[in-house]
């Protein structure tokens, strides 16, 4: 019987949501492949929340693992892999995973399929991942032996995890020889965000398609006409056209507005994770293949400069009627 190791990232002792989503993917994979599913936590005890169907949970305790570092995580997982000989190591594609999984893959010389959104079963598993910022999907396979796979946030549903009471086994690792070359301080937030988009009922968000800082006025006027907050995707903030507290997405705010109007935003996954739960999503983009249309309720494939000023006028008219 084959083995799947599911690394369950803990943040302040709590299972990371993306890690639990990946674990649900692991439950499906284990069922499809007839493999064992074994959770791995870098902690002396397994958190109580991990009452999910798994064959067992391996707890790995070492003082060197109390604070995250790529060096110790790679060394610890390499030892677990050597002991367990799994066919598959899965994890959530968290920022932390992006930091250490590639390093692990290079050290043990195994393939890494990163940021997968799903899989298809067959004679061998086909991994599905996004390329070109989500505009295109790719099917990827690996040869014999261990593959390391990370799953995108939202690829699977943590609320569909099958419950269970897995046995817990502790596994020793020796990290005394690991030289930690990178020393990290405590996480902090920059000055408290002046704009709280998470409470906004309506958001007009602007992306790279606006092309020019001066043109932002067009989108501001639309937002004002709608009584909406102004939001943006990452490039607009990177260019310095809007402050960081306007940014929606994985490195900015997560919003749940009733109306989200995306203007000139292509909708890469980093943006989508911050806004896909909005009630009504409208996308205006000249590229019909922009991934934002994947999740839009209403789509307008057109030059935003043709649409936005007219829409502002029409909204004003509607609201004064």
């Amino acid at each position: 019987m084959g083995k799947i190791l599911a690394f369950i990232q803990l943040d302040d002792g709590q299972p990371n949501r993306n890690a639990l989503e990946a674990l649900q993917g692991g439950q499906q994979l284990a069922a499809d492949m007839g493999h064992q599913l074994i959770g791995v936590v870098f902690s002396a005890s397994s958190p109580q929340q991990l009452q999910f169907k798994m064959d067992e949970i391996i707890t790995v305790a070492a003082p060197e693992l109390e604070h995250y570092s790529a060096d110790t995580y790679v060394a610890a997982m390499a030892q677990i892999i050597a002991a367990e000989q799994p066919d598959l190591l899965i994890a959530g594609h968290t920022y932390q995973a992006r930091d250490w999984l590639p390093r692990l893959a290079a050290q043990i010389s195994r393939p890494l399929i990163s940021d997968c959104i799903g899989f298809q079963k067959g004679a061998q598993i086909t991994w599905v991942r996004q390329v070109f910022q989500g505009k295109v999907h790719a099917d990827v396979t690996t040869g014999e032996g261990l593959a390391i796979v990370s799953f995108q946030a939202g690829a699977f549903r943590h609320d569909r995890l099958e419950s269970g009471s897995p046995a817990i086994r502790s596994q020793e690792v020796d990290l005394s020889a690991v030289e930690v070359q990178v020393r990290a301080g405590e996480p902090f937030q920059d000055t408290k965000a002046a704009v709280d988009l998470s409470r906004a009922e309506r958001i007009v968000a602007v992306g790279r398609g606006i092309g020019d800082e001066e043109k932002l006025a067009l989108v501001r006027e639309l937002a004002e006409a709608l009584g909406a907050e102004l939001g943006s995707s990452r490039p607009v903030v990177d260019y310095g056209w809007l402050s960081h507290d306007r940014q929606v997405g994985s490195s900015g705010q997560t919003v749940a507005a009733k109306l989200y109007l995306a203007v000139g935003i292509s909708g890469a996954i980093q943006h989508q994770v911050g806004m896909k739960n909005c009630g009504c999503i409208v996308a205006i983009n000249k590229d019909a293949n922009a991934p934002i249309f994947e999740i839009a309720d209403y789509g307008i494939v057109a030059d935003l400069f043709e649409i936005v000023p007219r829409l502002t006028a029409a909204i004003k008219e509607h609201r004064s009627a």
Binding site: R110, H137, V140, T142, G143, I300, I307
Partner: peptide, 25 residues
């Protein structure tokens, strides 16, 4: 290579987007 790209394709849409078409007005 330890991994092989089998194919790429335009993703199948899961959400029913209503496309609005015509002149801008």
């Amino acid at each position: 290579p330890m991994q092989t790209l089998q194919r790429i394709y335009v993703p199948v849409k899961t959400k029913e987007t209503v496309y609005l078409e015509g002149a801008p007005e």
